[in-house]
Design a protein around this nucleic acid. Structure first.
Length: 482
DNA sequence: TGGGGTTAT
DNA sequence: ATAACCC
């Protein structure tokens, strides 16, 4: 209101991007009778479809490292280069290098099957993620030098929003240089480039930045990977995998439908997971085209408006979700799986191990966790994937000891964790666990003297409830007696 | 299936 | 606290 030339302060614009065609949106112009606030239901004086370039004019790159854990292992052990190498966690080969793939080893293959397929396969244990995690953040930090808008996806993928960078580079080009702009890497579908199409130009410059990113990753970190450049995260991710290993691909808008039609099943659509795919199959939806043409009303009834709207847009290649800068992690966790744990003493030993590693990590980070969580998985013969958890606040006197080193923080933490354990597991009855995990979350910046004062006055749990004599718990944290 | 992560409800 | 998603 008031900020747009030609509109008076009580004129409101309302945009709806509900329409399936992302290049159109509905525009309502209304006038409000109330003071200063946008009307909940404006008087609609005009309602029509108008062109917008809201989501389709961005330039996004998806960077995907090749067999990341195997690459890190080959950097640590150069003598393994050129040989078939697998990274093992428990009895699984979780990933392997391309030499091993050529000999038939697949990701998440059973160790026995892998050895059978490929007797020369060399296996290294990858259960300790420390070096992978460290290298992963080096990659993210390198990408953040290009643009600060970097979103991590797992340890080996990053999205970067290049829109602003690309716009600046194009502005700095002279008009005679514009006709000399070329693509770096592949163009999806071998689609011809039109140098008079502004979006083509943006994506070409995006492909050049992507190539610079991959060069920097190789020169500075010794890593190879793929990149995909497109106008949104979904398309960038899908196109990054088209030419595999160590190559890059740019998607021009005209080939978008071809890209999404290249998917053989909706489960291959990022954002449609195991559960949703199963529910869609029941509805007879198997292909991307099935999902595109399916009645939205019925889809909404089955999945709710949120999921229905999101996934049907995905099926058209539409994805307006922003690249969210990941920043430092929201949580730290360590887990261990095993065939059987059936006694409290055994569980305590494992919990102590997990906690010791976590304390090192959290100490390095500098911030302090204010919540601790224990997660278990109970054995069940057939039915899989069900975890239970209990969490509680970390007492402030324990938080303050974190990272100081000379005070024993293990003992009070283990005591808390064992209370959470007994809250979940009836130790007087037989039990059979197959996984234990400890998680630190609710991380807050360490108190400086100044900020400590501010916290004292502004943090509800300290300043407004400390006089009540009882601790107040937000959410559903389990209450642990001291 | 491992050992991690995130957000939404 | 759980359920879904991602790697």
């Amino acid at each position: 209101p008031g900020g747009l030339p030609g509109f008076k302060s009580k004129t409101y614009l309302s945009f709806s991007t509900h329409d399936i065609n992302q290049d159109l949106c509905s525009l309502s112009i209304g006038a409000s009778g109330s003071e200063g606030m946008p009307p909940k239901c404006p008087t609609i004086v005009h309602d029509q479809l108008v062109p917008t370039q809201s989501s389709s004019s961005r330039v996004i790159v998806h960077v995907d490292l090749d067999c990341f854990y195997a690459q890190v292992e080959m950097i640590s052990h150069p003598e393994l280069k050129g040989k078939p190498l697998g990274v093992q966690q428990k009895y699984l080969v979780v990933t392997c290098n391309y030499e091993a793939r050529e000999l038939g080893v697949k990701k998440l293959m059973n160790v026995r099957d892998a050895k059978e397929k490929c007797p020369q396969l060399i296996l290294v244990n990858g259960e300790d993620l420390t070096r992978y995690r460290e290298m992963s953040y080096k990659v993210t930090e390198l990408l953040e030098e290009f643009s600060p808008i970097v979103e991590r996806l797992g340890f080996d993928e990053n999205f970067v929003d290049l829109t602003e960078m690309v716009e600046k580079r194009l502005q700095h080009l002279q008009s005679n240089e514009l006709s000399a702009v070329t693509v770096s890497g592949h163009v999806y579908n071998n689609q011809p480039v039109n140098l008079h199409n502004i979006m083509h130009m943006r994506l070409l410059v995006g492909s050049q930045v992507a190539a610079e990113m991959r060069e920097a990753m190789h020169n500075q970190l010794g890593l190879t990977g793929c990149a995909g450049v497109a106008s949104n995260k979904l398309l960038a991710k899908l196109v990054s995998g088209v030419f595999k290993p160590n190559q890059q691909t740019v998607l021009l808008p005209e080939s978008c439908q071809d890209l999404i039609n290249s998917l053989n099943h909706i489960k291959e659509m990022p954002g449609i997971g195991y559960k949703t795919a199963k529910r869609l199959e029941v509805l007879g939806i198997n292909s991307v085209h099935d999902l595109q043409s399916f009645s939205f009303k019925i889809l909404e009834k089955e999945l709710g408006i949120s999921v229905a709207q999101r996934i049907q847009k995905l099926s058209f290649g539409e994805d307006n979700s922003p690249v969210m800068p990941s920043g430092p992690p929201q949580s730290f966790s360590e887990e261990d799986s095993f065939k059987k744990c059936s006694s409290e003493v055994e569980a305590k030993k494992k919990i102590e191990e997990l906690l010791a590693s976590l304390l090192n990590r959290v100490c390095q980070d500098g911030r302090r966790p204010h919540t601790i969580r224990l997660v278990i998985r109970r054995y069940s013969p057939e039915k899989h994937y069900s975890r239970e958890s209990r969490q509680c606040p970390i007492p402030s006197h324990v938080i303050q000891k974190l990272g100081t080193g000379n005070y024993d923080v293990m003992t009070p933490m283990v005591d808390i964790l064992m209370k959470l354990f007994r809250n979940m597991v009836n130790v007087k009855m037989p039990f059979h666990l197959t996984l234990l995990s400890v998680c630190f979350c609710n991380l807050k910046a360490q108190n400086t003297a100044k900020k400590g004062l501010i916290d004292y006055y502004l943090t509800p749990s300290l300043s407004t409830t400390s006089h009540s004599g009882k601790r107040s718990f937000k959410m559903k944290d389990t209450h642990i007696e001291d």
